[in-house]
Write a protein that binds this DNA or RNA. Structure first.
Lengths: 338, 338
DNA sequence: AACTGGCACTCGAAACCGCGGAGTGCCAGG
DNA sequence: CCTGGCACTCCGCGGTTTCGAGTGCCAGTT
């Protein structure tokens, strides 16, 4: 176990390094923080911290920088979540309230997060699988061609084209529309399948194939396509750090273009606890010197999607966590209102 | 006027520079291209080309690189549009045909363009203002709360919430829905306003405010919100060039995050001719060493939106133009089919 | 035992230097 | 009008030097 002062030294190192982006030495430490001990003592502490793997030297006789393990200890034991200022909160609220539809909410959220944290922001669209049906609409575009429009309680709209095996009359369509809505409105997506299974049987034999086609498309949309959409922004912030590396920015940009990677980045945890993944804790090569701060958000009590930021491991964790949490809350509010 | 051979020299310089990314000298030129003259002669030609402003030296006694003006002459007079190989065409077709909805079409198009050109791809969603109405749907979410869903012939779907001043009965709603569709389906957006102006008058006085609310939201969606959405991809390609400059990648990334800038980049020309804007021809600072190749695409004869790529001025213009044009065509086809 | 001042040592970053070579401009001759 | 030759320029590269921040260790103090 590390003594109290050693922890204090680690904290000081993290803070200084985050600020200056340069390895921090014993002398600078004692000057900028009043630790009440001499540089020599700090050096001894540093040697211990290094043995334990919390800090490292880029090369002999340079200052120390925190390791992933060091950052981990920092966020677990020492870093609070810095709340935002009142002004910031108001700005968030105002900015998000101007949104006209779901796309706009997500777009604004991304911008907001990127600006607030000065890092790359990632926002997942409210997931289909965790939300519920507000309305199902069926439109006839041509005699044997329908469009299915699905509206969720989070304001998301999905549409699908359906080619029917046979023409469908308006009356049948209206009938189907009414029954469908009666059964599924208000239901969670996952609960829908059993509720509509027997629907075709209540129609004339001639119409059953068409009804079946509609249902299969509906179920496909609801369940079988967990393809989640994601929006990201603030990529320009990648250039703020990384003075040394087009070398390191490259794989990050590549990773950020992969929807799958982004989804995994945000994590699959369904509860709304904030997760911080640091450096090598990220499974993905090329994200080994980045950290991800993510949290769920939702219109109600439960999270329907996640959002977060990815930045260099040397980030201001308390500040970033504060911003992420605050934005998630406000987005949740906005979604609940619409 | 430049002699035939001087043009040939310019072409050779452009091609070599695009390939090697290094200033090209007279000797290398005569070796790689059989110009039939000696290096000394080429040097004289180069001197002339430099006087005319088509090429420049990074510093005395270095090779030459093309200026923006040089590239301009190159694409105007010398560069054809390199057609894609049959294999590439097939790949495009296959890839785009897998799309399930408009979002997916756009997403796939962006990927495709980025991969094909190895540059940053920009695709504008089919514009609202230039497309026509396929269907208007009205849903009642609560007694005095409606949702308007608008489906365009390009498959785009817009939805809006409407708060009505008074509750609306289902019959009135059905009536309104039917009349609305009868009047506007198949119409271009711009033509809609006069067609619905007198609609409120045909309803009971009690319902007119609600009808008016619906109409105003509809018109707002059709006309007053020319906010276009844009998707981009392939940002990682920015790192392929620019070995020298995180300095130059920064402003580009920033510019690419501004929807407005992107829209202007694609240009406002409504016809489907391809535009190439080179270096300083771009109004925007920070895009001064990038070129933009853009072209309109559409489901029919007329362009409903644009797409293109942005890359370094030293790009393979014929190849890029070929890819952009081909992708635009196939996307047009796909949209027409859906 | 814990802390401190002192000291020799290490090693990267920056400055400096010299050189090779690609490329140029110019000129005189075909 | 083209060409070979020639002197010149300057960048890029590798090696050396210097400088200084920072370290580890030790002996001395509290």
């Amino acid at each position: 176990m590390l003594s109290e002062r050693r922890l204090e030294v680690l904290r000081a190192i993290v803070q200084d390094y985050v600020g200056t982006e340069e390895p921090v030495g014993s002398k600078a430490l004692t000057e900028r923080h009043h630790l009440g001990v001499s540089p020599a003592t700090v050096r001894n502490d540093m040697a211990v911290l290094e043995d334990e793997g919390y800090i490292a030297q880029p090369h002999t006789s340079a200052g120390r920088i925190p390791t992933d393990k060091g950052y981990r200890l920092f966020v677990d034991k020492m870093a609070g979540v810095k709340p935002l200022s009142a002004a910031e909160r108001r700005a968030i609220q105002n900015f998000l309230e101007g949104a006209v539809d779901l796309d706009d909410v997500v777009a604004r959220t991304v911008r907001l997060l990127a600006q607030l944290t000065r890092q790359v922001a990632v926002v997942q669209y409210p997931s289909l699988t965790r939300s519920s049906v507000r309305h199902v609409e069926l439109l006839s575009l041509a005699p044997a061609r329908l469009m299915l429009v699905l509206i969720t309680d989070t304001g998301r709209v999905e549409q699908r084209l359906i080619d029917c095996p046979a023409p469908v009359t308006e009356t049948v369509l209206a009938d189907l529309r009414a029954r469908l809505n009666a059964r599924v409105v208000g239901r969670r997506f996952a609960d829908v399948p059993p509720l509509v299974q027997d629907l075709p049987e209540s129609f004339e034999a001639d119409d059953r194939p068409a009804v079946a086609a509609v249902l299969s498309t509906l179920l496909e949309t609801l369940v079988e396509r967990p393809e989640e959409r994601i929006m990201l922004g603030g990529a320009a912030n990648l250039t703020r750090f990384n003075h040394d590396f087009p070398l390191t920015i490259r794989p990050v940009l590549e990773a950020l273009e992969e929807q799958m990677v982004l989804l995994k980045l945000l994590g699959e945890a369904t509860d709304s606890a904030m997760t911080v993944r640091i450096g090598h804790e990220n499974f993905h090569e090329g994200l080994n010197s980045t950290s991800v701060v993510a949290v769920g958000y939702g219109s109600g009590d439960e999270a329907v999607a996640k959002l977060g930021v990815v930045g260099p491991t040397r980030m201001d964790y308390p500040g970033t966590m504060g911003a992420v949490r605050a934005v998630a809350r406000y987005v949740g509010q906005i979604l609940a209102e619409s």
